[in-house]
Design a binder for these strands. Structure first.
Lengths: 213, 213
DNA sequence: TCACAAATCAAACGTTTGTTTGATTTATCT
DNA sequence: AGATAAATCAAACAAACGTTTGATTTGTGA
């Protein structure tokens, strides 16, 4: 599906509001007001509020389609280098699309799946990510660089969980670390560096043998 | 505040529904129907829907008041043992109160804080947990058991983030690991063990010197 | 310039929302 | 048993909800 500029603008506003107040907590009048359009335009362009959030997922998923394959299939990189690049990719992606990932986290917290479309998309994405990590880990094991007792599932949980938690509780950590004066961009930059270093050291200590680089 | 049996029953039903559909997504008629009471009873007992969720937070927070102090102040345990007990405690607590922690995660995802009461309670809880981890880590450093370059903030993120992520995406991991036949209790038990082993090995590798136990 | 389609609008639609009302039942206490 | 308070109920309330309508404006191609 193709969306024109006006539709993309509506999607962008909806994304911000859904992230802030949730899907049920955001009314189409909220969206219309923030996007400076008439309420009826949402039904006119998307059909319904439900279809609007589906369009949001569709757009954001299409944007991040490739990405992983390039890392996995790169012959020049060692398994550990691939892991490092993967880690930085996840950090950049989650920190660079905070609103959308906020919405995706909310959707995953919902027991009653509102829409099959969205849960299918999320499943597909998770599967890809999991397969990517898995194939890198297996390659490392086959080459004798990584330990045999590795749980890709739990390592994924640590990677995504740590980044998500850091983002979700960032206002708290700003407070206790007296970083409230920092601008958002500066804070994000510092957070990226810390997360990167932290996760790389965890992964190295968990998967790699001592002797490896 | 004290709550009678009927109020606690309402709170319990509300907790389950809020976890499944979110606060905005759950109507007081939903709650009243599931709890088999009249809609007006919620206003009668709590004043408003908003006050109901505040009551839920109040009750759940009071339940888990002590807990941490006992670990930190126990003289017989080594710092690493304390960390291990802390890890198992977090796993048990999060897995044992899935509904409530689902709601708490949702609240933390909300930018516009609906209620100062709730965000204050969450802040207080986070602070306690962070201080607990921090004091154990510092004790380990002072005794020369732990490395000096430890970031308590990021380690907290890894601990809570990993467990939260594992719980949130459990249906996915059941699917890809062909564990769909397992009952919820069996799955939880197996997940607990795996998370415990995984996180302990991460913490040991990250904070402890090689020579230590 | 005309005709036709796309876009925009205020207004109204029928539901659902959280809350309140006032009557009625149930429990408590002397 | 009788009086007083607590609990429960169906019904109604205004407000907000997502969506639709029908008229009006804007844009496009001939």
């Amino acid at each position: 599906m193709e969306y024109n500029a006006k539709q993309l603008q509506i999607i962008q506003v909806a994304e911000r509001l859904f992230a802030g107040k949730g899907f049920s907590g955001t009314s189409i009048r909220d969206i219309a007001h923030e996007a400076d359009i008439n309420v009826s335009m949402i039904s006119y362009y998307f059909g319904s509020k439900e279809k609007l959030i589906e369009a949001l997922f569709e757009v954001r998923f299409n944007e991040s389609a490739e990405r992983l394959d390039n890392i996995v299939s790169n012959e020049d990189l060692s398994p550990l280098q691939k892991i490092y690049i993967l880690i930085d990719g996840v950090i950049d992606r989650l920190l660079g699309n905070k609103c959308f990932h906020n919405i995706m986290l909310r959707e995953q917290l919902s027991g009653e799946e509102r829409t099959q479309v969205i849960s299918d998309l999320i499943y597909e994405l998770k599967l890809k990510n999991w397969q990517g990590i898995n194939s890198i880990l297996r390659e490392g094991q086959e080459k004798g660089h990584f330990k045999e007792s590795i749980d890709a599932t739990l390592l994924s949980a640590t990677l995504y969980g740590t980044v998500n938690h850091a983002i979700t509780t960032q206002s708290f950590y700003r407070r206790i670390n007296s970083l409230e004066s920092l601008g958002q961009d500066e804070f994000d930059k510092s957070l990226k560096q810390k997360l990167s270093k932290h996760l790389k050291s965890i992964f190295k200590a968990t998967v790699a043998y001592e002797t490896i680089e």
